[in-house]
Simulated scan of single mutants.
Amino acid sequence: MIDVYTVKFKSQDFNEYFQLVSDASVMEMITERAIPMDEARIDFEQLMENNKLNDNFGHFKILTVSSNEFVGLAKLVLNEENKVEAELGYMILPLYWGKGIASHVARKLIGHAKQQESLEKVVAIIDPKNIPSRKILINNGFVSKEFKDFDGLPGEILALELP
């Protein structure tokens, strides 16, 4: 497995973010389409605003330890309406698929969530066809809660109750 670490996205990281969200294969199980530049800029500004809300939560770049290469995005975002819940997610560039990175990042985010005394639950939303992500989440204790439509796209909500 490639050793990786995470750091919060900063305003100068738009190009890495756009590299990820403009890749149709990355976005196939998320939005079913690549995100165009103008939409990505708006999304990135919202991501940056979210990153300012809490030091312990937000959107993180995934980088290789050996060369600081950009691998993808990891998120652990506090639910602003229900502050005892956070959403976990990740997107990995295709070059790094199948190398155990998503599993490693998911474990790190879950470990971080467990250290936050205020959290009671972590949720993840996936495309029901995304079997690899579903497997990662189930292997980390997540349980399927419901299937739901998200803006016309299918979604499965999985949850992990924290001790």
Rank of each mutant, 00 (worst) to 15 (best):
R33L: 03
G141N: 07
G58V: 06
M37V: 05
V143T: 15
V143D: 13
M29T: 13
F60D: 10
I92F: 08
I101P: 05
M29S: 14
F70S: 09
P94N: 05
V77Y: 00
V84A: 15
E146L: 13
N139S: 10
I62E: 04
V123K: 08
R33A: 09
W97F: 10
G58L: 04
Q12D: 15
A86P: 05
E49R: 14
P128E: 03
M29L: 15
A34F: 05
N140I: 03
H59Q: 08
E117F: 07
L93W: 02
K61T: 15
G100D: 05
I125S: 10
V65W: 01
N51H: 02
D55K: 14
D23N: 15
L95Q: 10
K52G: 08
V65E: 10
D55L: 13
K129L: 09
L88K: 01
M27E: 07
E69M: 11
P128F: 01
E117V: 11
I35S: 13
K129I: 03
L78G: 02
D43K: 14
N140R: 07
K129Y: 03
E28D: 13
K83A: 11
G111M: 12
D151I: 02
F150R: 12
D151K: 09
I92P: 05
K114S: 05
S66M: 12
A102Q: 09
I125R: 11
L78P: 04
N130H: 11
Y96S: 01
F150W: 07
R107T: 12
I138R: 04
A24P: 04
N139L: 04
N50Q: 15
E117M: 09
N54F: 00
E45D: 15
K129R: 12
M29I: 12
M27N: 05
E87G: 00
E146Q: 14
S66C: 13
L78S: 03
M91H: 04
L95N: 10
L78M: 07
H104C: 14
Q12A: 11
G111A: 06
P94W: 09
V105N: 01
F14V: 04
F9K: 00
S25H: 02
K52H: 11
S144N: 06
R41P: 02
M27F: 14
D55I: 11
D23I: 12
S22Q: 08
V77M: 02
R134L: 05
E85V: 14
Q46G: 09
V123F: 10
I62F: 07
P94T: 01
D13C: 03
S103I: 02
H59L: 08
F18N: 12
L119D: 08
V77D: 00
E28Y: 14
L76A: 11
S25P: 00
V26M: 04
M37S: 06
I30A: 13
S67F: 07
G72D: 04
N51R: 03
G100K: 02
M37K: 08
G100N: 02
F44V: 07
